[in-house]
Design a protein around this nucleic acid. Sequence first.
DNA 1: GCCCTTCTTTGGACCGTTCCAGATCTCTCC
DNA 2: GGAGAGATCTGGAACGGTCCAAAGAAGGGC
Lengths: 335, 335
Amino acid sequence: MRPPTIRDVAERAGVSKSLVSLVLRGSQQVRPEKRRAVLAAVEELGYRPNAAARSLSERRTRTVGVLLNDLRNPWFVELLDGLNSELYASGLRTLLADGRLNRRLGEDLTHTFTELRVDGLIAVGTLPDPAAVRTAAARVPTVVAGTREPVLPDVDIVAGDDELGARLATEHLIGLGHRHIAHIAGRGVVGELRRRGFEAVMREHGLSGSATVEQGDLTEEGGYRATVRLLGAPHRPTAVFAFNDMAGVGALSAAGELGLRVPGDLSLVGYDNTYLARLRHLWLTTVDNAGHDMGRRAARRLLDRIADPARPGEVALTAPALEVRGTTAPPHPAD
Amino acid sequence: MRPPTIRDVAERAGVSKSLVSLVLRGSQQVRPEKRRAVLAAVEELGYRPNAAARSLSERRTRTVGVLLNDLRNPWFVELLDGLNSELYASGLRTLLADGRLNRRLGEDLTHTFTELRVDGLIAVGTLPDPAAVRTAAARVPTVVAGTREPVLPDVDIVAGDDELGARLATEHLIGLGHRHIAHIAGRGVVGELRRRGFEAVMREHGLSGSATVEQGDLTEEGGYRATVRLLGAPHRPTAVFAFNDMAGVGALSAAGELGLRVPGDLSLVGYDNTYLARLRHLWLTTVDNAGHDMGRRAARRLLDRIADPARPGEVALTAPALEVRGTTAPPHPAD
DNA sequence: GCCCTTCTTTGGACCGTTCCAGATCTCTCC
DNA sequence: GGAGAGATCTGGAACGGTCCAAAGAAGGGC
């Protein structure tokens, strides 16, 4: 009861296995009646090529590995979507591995990917183990997406311009009249860049004195706690710029619990423009990071690199855009 | 510059390739010094087995295909997590395909999976093309998770008891004193079951007359629109039980826009206990569907089925639990 | 020291494709 | 009718592992 092989098809169609192979790969050098005979045999037997045999022989898998930090972050899914659609168009399939989950399981995911001999690798977001990306990149064409690290030779980087995004958010708040603004900072290089953008703009407007930075993390919980600390301090900010939407939602909750109305008493900006920010009940002003588009660009970079593995690594930044919704407004005149 | 093969390792270690194979597969029949020599050679050459060659020879891939409806639905991710951890423990890796995305691309994902010769298949949630699951199930051990369809011979089903979950939600609302209760219904068998549970409980309490069902869909938008229609009707309900959390959040928004306070003027229950419901700013009363646990159970079923493909299909329902949060309260005495 | 048994180790067939060099067919042209 | 040129088709060697039967080595008993 084994699945039929190319030889079974050949026998049934009365041709050689080589001819079947030619037909299946779309060769023009085959006489129409033979082609028909082969296709009929394929149909009758329900033949499906064996991908393992094919890639063993072709010495490539037509598969790209995607290393993801956390599938629960909606922004990653967005990026993944763009990635998929572009790679699919080039006949590549995508193999997904969630680094957070599997690290918990104690496996180095790049091992799996090298054993599978993926044709390329995309590392999305800040990963638990950047060293693994380095060793993998030495073996297989690699592109880093959605973050600026690790910087490696022969690795392209496709990311948003986080510093610019942070500038947009901060300038929006200042433009509304806010002076005392806080930033809930994230971790890693991305967190660093967004914080830097915030601080630079505040400095440029002579507001360094009324700028506060509170360390949070990438979760709602982190945003909540940071905001509770911020709003409990003596010089309460009138606006908060959060590292990402999740933290922004946490800030929203904290404000609500402390009896502050948003945006009346407190303005709030998130980052990423995930579907969370688009929920009407949250309706968060945020910075659009163009995840889908970034995914497509990362895919194109990878295709280029697969074609020419030795090309020098490039850094491509996409410009983010401010998405103004319902959580920002001018401060009270009193403040 | 090809990656080293088992023969390269054998030559370096001064043994036969068969011995290398034995060592790598952990045989006890190998003398310690030879084992050491082989492992040293592996290390020096940076050898990694070729998964394609291995699975061609072993005639299995140690890979399970997961067909997912929509990665954006947090509940699916939860289930996936459970699935992964259990399968990983059995040495199986997981290959993920988002049906919604790929259908847009016009591909039948089961094709990919049959070409890859996955050892098993898990279909998660209501899929765009149930017929594809049928044909796939004829070739490869298959388990359906998170929904009750399609029912096929030799296919196990692991799902939540949706009717029971709906009963819990409805009884909770009735217990609080609500009489006029609306349900925002979803699509597919799952939607059907939840609606049936709702209607049964209303009937049992003699409340059929004040039960309303409004068709929504699985999105926030659908929940929002359905709620706007419900609240605009003459006999406004005092409580809404939504098909899932997303729809519940839409309902929350609609209530807010119409000037109704939740839970003061309107009680609200969702379904799935996704992280959305856990966001403090939403804090939605919901029905916990135990996604992680369900994923693990689905994995175990699949392992059983791979071991014995002919075993009769079973249906396993997990009991959901009500998770009471901040969106439900007794109605106004006036209502 | 020889035979027998039990460990270890090995060569070679096989898994299902692709690829290539060469065989075979078909035509065209003189 | 035969040569030459394409167009088609084919057999066999990879690809990199696993598996199995059998060879070789080592120890035990007489």
